[in-house]
Design a protein around this nucleic acid. Structure first.
Lengths: 346, 346
DNA sequence: CGGCAGGCTGGAAACGTTCCCAATCCAAGT
DNA sequence: ACTTGGATTGGGAACGTTTCCAGCCTGCCG
């Protein structure tokens, strides 16, 4: 059997131990109905040969692949990286591993990655959809025999559960906080308005401004990287109605805006206050410390993975899956007040 | 064949198209020696059934798994996350996916993760060894039928290639730079001296101090997180021979040290200069901007993956593998001078 | 003492694919 | 006309595992 450098197989072990393949299989799988003596013999042979079960054969026979797919825009992004870490931890608890692929937020790359990923027959899929498109949706919905959980963004119409945060509410709250400071010309600033989270945040901002009777000032023309922040902000600041506060829509916008203000020599918060979405490691170290809306990143990844495994369990057990299938978990963001919005004295 | 919700198989397609399984297989694999007409028929059947090849069966038959394992201390760490992204990009070019698992820099977790990972029979392995231990080494070396590439840290005696950076040289250069400023009491500060990179950097620092005839001041008692930086530094600063410059040994130490100095009200660089290992996004945004030794992170991940696939190609082709097997790639770090070391005026 | 239950064991079938070999067909060469 | 050969096709064997069934032995009950 064993050609040369090939891995030893069940029958190699069986031959060495002088037993049948069935017996070895029983030993490998916990040793029920195996005499202690035989167990010892077989175990010794396993150790001696360094036998490892062939995963592919097990899967082929009909088992789980013990693998879940993770499809995110980028794995270098700290947000998704932390989600991945948390999800990976949960996976390990279920004796599973993560197969990772990236979408770059582009639909074609996403479809391609999805296709490659599905070839590996993961038991389930954790997905951050790049958009709410239709081809995507239909393929997932129509012939995905595996449960799919979406996080950070929903996939309406696909019927799969999502783990989201209350972007709308927290944007509204954050904006209201700025309004409470007395700022009247609050600029909502950032990029990629086509993304769900960004759109929700803009909506929340809009609502709060409306409620306060203030005219909304929205500029979502900043790109994915925040390279143009400085020039864009220069224009806003030189306009006849310059903003006295800025709500930034995501991590990179917040940092880009801070850098731009620093570069332009605009004092924060005395001339322009700043409050941003997404916390970051050095937010407390910058001067002034940046006030942010903090997402429960770890919880997002963890919850998504837990939901997925719950569906997997449910699928193999009973018809409880309906309750799980319609789940939509909304986690609460936290407004973390520091200095940049004009508060405190730290 | 197809029970109910099961995925369609080759023979399902064959039956629908009215051909043999062999023909369908040929179509799926590029359609050589298949008449155009038959190709059309089969392709139609494939589309209609939504057939996807069963990866497990292919693998079992002896093919590649199109999968490479990535074993890193943490995937949330920006350094490893960026390496992973780069490696993943290379993998995709080779039609492969990444299976990720984490070691937390702990030996037991590493062995466990490795075991779980190997069960999935990746075609190759990208590894950041938690230590230079022996059990680990022997298992990898003895019965790993797949190529293993180590990065960030070597695994001496294992015979596998590594992708490293010139930690020693760049630490020496960085220290020399500080010495060039006229600093004489340079503290080498950070944690985890058991890690290869840290040890090399300490060695480089030591060498530079020795060459300048200065007494080394080394404190590597800071933990993995930099939580104790403040109290440790307070002690150093109050000693009768307080440092006038600090060389920090890694990312988190650099940030922790900066935070501690800020907290303690120590002006940088006028009272204590700072130069750290590892660049980070906001290094230019902090005031003063932090001078750092910058590692070519993307290159590390990319090179490691490229080396791995080169070995995979080589293994299936000829005996060129010897040349590849002994490869040890050392990438050059870059000293990025900003303000915190006392230079410039930005 | 005969039969039977139950622990233990060996081995065949099946999972879905690829690879190989044999079979078929048609055109062309002798 | 008969052979040859290439192109095309069908189908069996094998990959390594799990699962199931039959067989064996032992000890116990009737």
């Amino acid at each position: 059997m064993s050609k040369r450098h090939a891995q030893p197989t069940l029958s190699d072990v069986a031959r060495l131990a002088g037993v049948g393949v069935g017996t070895v299989s029983r030993v490998v799988n916990g040793g029920i109905n195996v005499s202690p003596e035989t167990f010892r013999k077989v175990d010794a042979a396993i150790q001696r040969l360094g036998y490892r079960p062939n995963h592919a054969a097990r899967v082929l026979k009909g088992g789980r692949t013990k693998t879940i797919g993770l499809l995110v825009p980028s794995i270098a992004d700290s947000f998704f990286a932390s989600c991945a870490e948390a999800a990976g931890r949960v996976a390990r608890l279920h004796d599973s591993l993560l197969i990772v692929s990236v979408t770059k937020n582009r639909h074609d790359a996403e479809m391609n990655s999805l296709d490659v990923l599905m070839r590996h027959r993961p038991d389930g899929l954790l997905l951050v959809p790049s958009s709410s498109s239709q081809t995507d949706l239909s393929r997932l919905l129509n012939r995905s025999p595996i449960p799919v959980i979406t996080f950070d963004r929903p996939l309406p119409g696909s019927g799969c559960s999502s783990v989201l945060t209350n972007s709308f509410e927290s944007a509204r709250e954050a904006t209201a906080h700025l309004i409470g400071h007395g700022y009247k010309r609050i600029l909502c600033f950032g990029g990629e308005p086509e993304l769900y989270t960004i759109a929700e945040r803009v909506r929340g901002y809009h609502k709060a401004m409306e409620e306060a009777g203030l005219p909304p000032m929205i500029d979502t023309s900043l790109g994915p990287d925040a390279s143009r922040a400085s020039s864009l902000l220069a224009v806003h600041l030189k306009s006849k109605r310059p903003p006295d506060a800025i709500l930034t829509l995501k991590n990179s916008s917040t940092i880009g805006t801070f850098q731009a203000l620093q570069e332009l020599g605009v004092p924060v918060p005395s001339r322009v206050a700043l409050l941003g979405f997404d916390d970051f490691e050095l937010a407390t170290t910058l001067r002034p410390a940046i006030s942010v809306v903090q997402q429960p990143i770890e919880d997002i990844g963890r919850t998504a993975a837990e939901l997925l495994f719950a569906q997997l369990e449910g699928a193999s057990r009973t018809k409880t899956s309906n309750r799980l299938k319609q789940n939509q978990v909304i986690l609460a963001n936290r407004l973390v007040i520091r200095r940049s919005c004009g508060c405190g004295s730290v």
